[in-house]
């Protein structure tokens, strides 16, 4: 199934709506494990973590369509790549915001230097801001698409390196599952949390896809009206 066909379909949007409401209703009712510092703030798990998943997925879509643009030279691929990155960036900011308030409660500060993941994601957000600055500085649309495509491929690979290799080498992270901290699977994420967490992931990813695909379709309609393609 192609991207364009998938985004015009209704069923997954219905699922997204249902799961969004499920997350926001049941997420506040479900009995959470009584953990010392986290307490009720553990409910942020249903908002903070899926933000990153949604961002990652949208950035992967951006990567995929950037590669596709470079090999096919079809401007439509570039439109999809751009809009996905835009909504991905939005989710990145939201992830930072929700993470920041959570950090204030549990770690005691808005921003923690020792936290590699936090700094890595801040860098990723900067990278994609630079991506849009790059786009805005070209007037020729073909050159814009080509150069920003190359940039986003490079950026994505370096971003993967950043969040996967650097924390391993320097090994300091306060997140669960890093450097001596137990992972979610071992004790945090009990079955009750799981029941909301996985649907929440699907819901937020669905919301991200929906938002970006709406922007893409608006752009496609515009291009058609301007008879570009």
């Amino acid at each position: 199934m192609t991207y364009e066909k998938f985004t015009t379909q209704i069923w997954w949007k219905a699922i997204t709506i249902v799961l969004l409401f499920y997350t926001c209703i049941y997420g506040f009712i479900v009995k959470v494990p009584d953990l010392p510092i986290l307490e009720q703030s553990i409910r942020n798990l249903f908002f903070h973590v899926p933000m990153w998943f949604a961002m990652m997925l949208l950035m992967m879509i951006n990567l995929f369509f950037s590669i596709k643009y470079l090999s096919s030279n079809s401007q439509r691929n570039d439109v999809i790549a751009e809009k996905s990155a835009l909504i991905g960036l939005l989710f990145g900011f939201l992830g930072l915001a929700t993470g920041s308030v959570w950090a204030k409660v549990t770690w005691g500060a808005w921003w923690v230097f020792a936290e590699v993941k936090l700094n890595a994601t801040a860098a990723a957000v900067l990278v994609y801001c630079a991506y849009f600055i790059l786009r805005s500085s070209f007037s020729d649309s073909e050159m814009k698409a080509k150069f920003s495509g190359v940039y986003s491929i490079f950026a994505f690979v370096m971003f993967m390196v950043f969040i996967n290799i650097i924390p391993r080498v320097s090994g300091s992270s306060l997140h669960p599952g890093n450097g001596g901290n137990p992972g979610f699977n071992s004790y945090d994420l009990d079955n009750n949390l799981r029941k909301v967490f996985y649907p929440a992931v699907i819901a937020w990813i669905g919301l991200g896809l929906w938002l970006s695909s709406l922007l893409v379709r608006i752009q496609f309609v515009k291009r058609k009206l301007d008879s570009i393609d």
């Binding site: 990723a124 900067l126 790059l134 370096m158 950043f162 650097i166």
Partner: peptide
């Protein structure tokens, strides 16, 4: 602008 965020790792 392009290079600094990427050079961070």
């Amino acid at each position: 602008v392009l290079g600094f965020p990427i050079i961070l790792p």
